[in-house]
Design a binder for these strands. Structure first.
Lengths: 125, 125
DNA sequence: CATGCAGTACGATTGGAGTCGTACAAACAA
DNA sequence: TTGTTTGTACGACTCCAATCGTACTGCATG
């Protein structure tokens, strides 16, 4: 049984309006690799980002400024790109902002239980 | 529900004979970190080792020669040490051999579902 | 004791990842 | 048009992990 929060998907998938900006380049669901996903999640900052998206995203995607991370912008670009290229998040460009959400359906299908581990994670002391 | 193979623990825990060699230094169960475990499993060779231990271990631990890995011994030492220090395997010295098994109970308690992901993994083409 | 075997220790090398400053591009608002 | 905002691109630096050769230790067996 998924956690209570996970019961509500972070992003609606079925009734997706067709006028969304195209996602940035990302691996297809069938090409997701467990070792690559593990590698992307071995960084505490990226684990924090994915967990926060899972726990606090309601129906909206979020730009990377939303996280309030105390890092230079060029560092954040690096980490969001790493997450996207590993297949963990999808990013779309909305005007100035590049908004992200977790690829919940793809990840649950390929790696059942993985996102529950991320949700249950707590940052180091 | 765990996979069929996982239903039989790789190593008996309860009726453990008290005359076993002491385990090599390893993190306590309470100190296991998800990001560290993910890091250890982001290497395909280590993923292969853990999966093989989960799938093919019956009641015995295995020395690293058992895997038939085509790597120099010094490389294998490196990877088994990485797995042990991340808390994924326990190693005991039996005469010449240093035998390993997965810390199934500890990992299932701290990260439920993780080992099922490893079991379901398939090496890259 | 002498030999052989499992595995370690150490060191060198290599490549890649994390970090960040600076300069720049694109979109929007006044 | 000019300025502001969001984020990228590029490059430099540092550090760590992966790889492996060589020498060594410790145990076992004849």
């Amino acid at each position: 049984m998924p956690s209570a929060k996970r019961a509500v998907p972070a992003v609606r998938v079925l009734p997706e309006p067709p006028d969304l900006p195209a996602p940035l380049p990302e691996p297809a669901a069938a090409d997701l690799r467990l070792e690559t996903v593990f590698g992307a999640l071995s960084d505490p900052l990226r684990l924090f980002i994915v967990r926060r998206l899972l726990l606090e995203s309601e129906e909206f995607d979020h730009p990377c400024g939303w996280f309030g991370l105390d890092r230079p912008k060029s560092s954040l670009t690096h980490h969001f790109k790493a997450l996207r290229e590993a297949g963990l998040i999808r990013q779309r460009q909305y005007g100035l902002e590049r908004r992200s959400h977790v690829r919940v359906a793809d990840l649950d299908a390929r790696f059942p239980g993985l996102l529950d581990l991320v949700t249950a994670w707590t940052p180091p002391a």
